[in-house]
């Protein structure tokens, strides 16, 4: 167990905790107005090291999704979205390759690749995550407007919170 593994494991646990203890309550507390689902746990996938193999990355996506699902009692809904997110991450990384290429020991964060790069990287992946999540959660094309509204509102709020998180904790690896 090296340092990186411990860091990411701790982040895993921490993100699940604040997601379940803080943001789940927020969604519930708003009662009728349930268009906003704040989600910070996708950050775990976003911040994993670049060198991580694809199958492991996707499996970790499944793991954190299932961890969240257990607390939300919505088995599979979050997991399917995080698996999709983890599947897309290498694709997006390839598209956003900076001029000098990646240092495979790095994590894709602000410190290594700059604020603008991270903004594009995280927003695009997060957006796909929300689209997929609400499609699976609503599960019918009949409420497509619902899917669009929920995706946009949840995406904006969650994204602001994720940026705050990244600013506050400023993850290194």
């Amino acid at each position: 167990m090296n340092n990186t593994t411990i860091t990411h494991s701790l982040r895993f646990i921490f993100l699940v905790f604040i997601q379940v203890l803080v943001f789940r309550q927020m969604t519930v507390g708003w009662g009728e107005f349930n268009y906003v689902h704040v989600m910070v746990y996708p950050l775990f996938i976003l911040l994993l090291p670049i060198r991580i193999p694809d199958p492991l990355l996707i499996f970790l996506g499944f793991l954190i999704g299932m961890a969240i699902d257990i607390f939300y009692t919505s088995y599979g809904v979050h997991a399917s979205a995080t698996v999709f997110l983890a599947f897309l991450r290498p694709v997006v990384l390839k598209i956003l390759t900076p001029r000098g290429g990646y240092n495979i020991n790095h994590s894709p964060n602000i410190k290594n690749y700059g604020f603008v790069w991270f903004l594009i990287y995280s927003s695009s992946l997060l957006f796909f995550h929300f689209v997929f999540y609400f499609i699976v959660s609503v599960f019918t094309h009949v409420y497509w407007l619902e899917i669009v509204l929920r995706t946009i509102s949840s995406f904006i709020v969650s994204y602001v919170i994720i940026l705050l998180y990244v600013r506050i904790f400023n993850p290194r690896d």
């Binding site: 193999p53 199958p55 499944f62 088995y75 698996v83 699976v136 599960f139």
Partner: peptide, 24 residues
């Protein structure tokens, strides 16, 4: 392997979705 694991896990997830979630 990425695509393979993705497809397998996605199938597992979706079958969980339609097994354990009432609406879906």
């Amino acid at each position: 392997g990425g695509i393979l694991v993705f497809l397998i896990l996605e199938v597992i997830c979706l079958s969980l979705v339609v097994t354990f979630n009432k609406d879906q």
